[in-house]
Simulated assay, not measured.
Amino acid sequence: MLTRAMTAALLLALSLSSYADTPSSFRQAKVWAKEYVYLDRNTSDYGTLYCGCQWRWTGESGGRIDLEGCGYEIRAQENRAKRIEWEHIMPAHSLGHQRQCWQEGGRRNCVSNDAVFNVMYVDLFNLTPVVGEFNADRSNYRFTQFPASAPYQHGACPSRVDFSQRAAEPRPEARGLVARTYMYMHDRYNLPMSRAQQQIMMAWDRQYPVTDWERVRHDRIAAVMGHENPFVTGAKTWSLGHTNSGEGLRHAGSSLSAKDSHSIDLPGPIHGNRNSKVYHLPTGCPSYNAMADRNRVEFSSEAEAIAAGYRKAGNCR
């Protein structure tokens, strides 16, 4: 059941629907997440996603964790354990590591130079406040489910990490939301998901249906960003071997500025290789004419190629 504060916040978010947009930066994404999504959640029983801790808001988007109240025990990083951090449920590494910008300079380079990465990076559906130390410990590890005997590392926090396996397990209350977020991100941005990870997410989606809070969170984010997560609303379901829509890439490509898309007069179309999903410019790319005709796809701009899921060839100057 919605509290009065939750209802008021939802109405506020809905009033912004005519301004629906993607945040322009990670800093803005955190501020919007605080002001329009989590503003009244810091003292709720649900708490932070993985550990269920409450917090006190500080600054424009920060917070101080009530460690004693949730029984969290500091493992190694005291400063980060005491604050909330905004985690990408699907890690930034997973969003960027297949893109050319990540190969050439990691997250910082992608944030500075890749407009498509930035659309994924600031997607509010993929952001949540968590205990900072757990965010660090979870890192970019895959999600899985551990045997009951597996140890807990953070006191009463009911989520676990296995550093040797590079794997993490969210608490039961978080698993459905995690699964439907993964499905959304992979589908919307045409990202590959391993068979094993698909099976885990499908199982969690079935076992942990959408909760009242997940629905409220979804509706608040949808009102701000102007689109929904179809795996929360039920408009889509995931089955093994799911075909991604790539809808977010098309949106990102259509909204790139002339500067971002390198929209200049070129002496010919851009050539994409349908097998490697790599594109070549008519100038500065030695392999522009090297691919077989049967593998060639032509694009009128880099934005169009990027929106179709292609990345620039590594040997382009």
Score class of each variant (00 low, 15 high):
Met1Asp: 13
Met1Ile: 08
Met1Trp: 10
Leu2His: 02
Leu2Gly: 03
Thr3Ser: 12
Leu16Met: 09
Ser18His: 15
Ser18Lys: 13
Ser18Ala: 13
Tyr19Ser: 10
Tyr19Met: 06
Asp21Phe: 09
Pro23Glu: 06
Phe26Ala: 08
Trp32Ala: 00
Lys34Arg: 15
Lys34Pro: 00
Glu35Leu: 01
Tyr36Glu: 02
Tyr36Trp: 10
Val37His: 01
Leu39Asn: 00
Arg41Asp: 00
Asn42Tyr: 01
Asn42Asp: 08
Gly47His: 05
Gly47Gln: 02
Tyr50Cys: 04
Cys53Arg: 02
Gln54Leu: 06
Trp55Tyr: 15
Arg56Glu: 15
Trp57Lys: 00
Trp57Met: 01
Thr58Tyr: 12
Ser61Met: 06
Gly69Ile: 07
Gly69Asn: 12
Cys70Asn: 03
Cys70His: 01
Gly71Asp: 06
Glu87His: 07
Met90Arg: 09
Ala92Pro: 11
His97Lys: 12
Gln98Glu: 15
Cys101Asp: 07
Gly105Arg: 08
Gly106Pro: 00
Arg107Thr: 05
Asn109Ser: 04
Phe117Glu: 03
Met120Ile: 02
Tyr121Met: 09
Thr128Ile: 04
Gly132Val: 01
Phe134Ser: 00
Ala136Asn: 12
Asp137Leu: 01
Arg142His: 11
Phe143Trp: 07
Gln145Glu: 15
Phe146Asn: 03
Pro147Ala: 07
Pro147Phe: 07
Pro147Arg: 06
Ala148Lys: 12
Ser149Glu: 15
Ala150Asn: 04
Pro158Gly: 08
Ser159Ala: 12
Ser159Glu: 06
Phe163Leu: 10
Ser164Cys: 08
Ser164Glu: 14
Gln165Pro: 03
Arg166Met: 05
Ala167Glu: 12
Ala168Phe: 15
Pro170Thr: 09
Arg171Ser: 13
Pro172Trp: 05
Tyr182Pro: 00
Met183Trp: 12
Met183Leu: 07
Asp187Cys: 03
Leu191Arg: 02
Pro192Thr: 15
Met193Phe: 09
Met193Pro: 00
Ser194Tyr: 14
Ala196Val: 14
Ala196Trp: 08
Gln197Cys: 02
Gln197Met: 13
Gln199Met: 11
Gln199Ile: 10
Tyr208Cys: 07
Tyr208Ile: 06
Tyr208His: 11
Asp212Leu: 12
Asp212Ile: 09
Val216Ser: 02
Val216Ala: 09
His218Ala: 04
Arg220Ile: 01
Ile221Leu: 04
Ala222Thr: 03
Val224Asn: 01
Asn229Phe: 08
Val232Gly: 03
Thr233Tyr: 10
Gly234Asp: 13
Lys236Val: 05
Lys236Glu: 14
Ser239Arg: 15
Leu240Thr: 11
Leu240Arg: 13
Asn244Thr: 12
Gly248Arg: 01
Gly253Tyr: 01
Gly253Glu: 05
Ser257Thr: 14
Ser257Tyr: 13
Ala258Pro: 05
Ser261Leu: 07
His262Thr: 09
Leu266His: 04
Gly268Lys: 05
Arg274Ile: 11
Arg274Asn: 14
Tyr279Met: 07
Tyr279Pro: 05
Thr283Cys: 11
Thr283Phe: 14
Thr283Asn: 12
Gly284Ala: 11
Cys285Val: 03
Cys285Asn: 06
Pro286Leu: 10
Tyr288Arg: 07
Asn289Ile: 05
Ala290Asp: 13
Val297Cys: 09
Glu298Asp: 14
Ser300Trp: 14
Glu302Met: 08
Glu304His: 07
Ile306Cys: 10
Ala308Pro: 07
Gly309Gln: 08
Arg311Thr: 14
Lys312Ser: 05
Ala313Tyr: 11
Asn315Leu: 12
Cys316Val: 06
Cys316Phe: 08
Arg317Phe: 13
Arg317Ser: 15
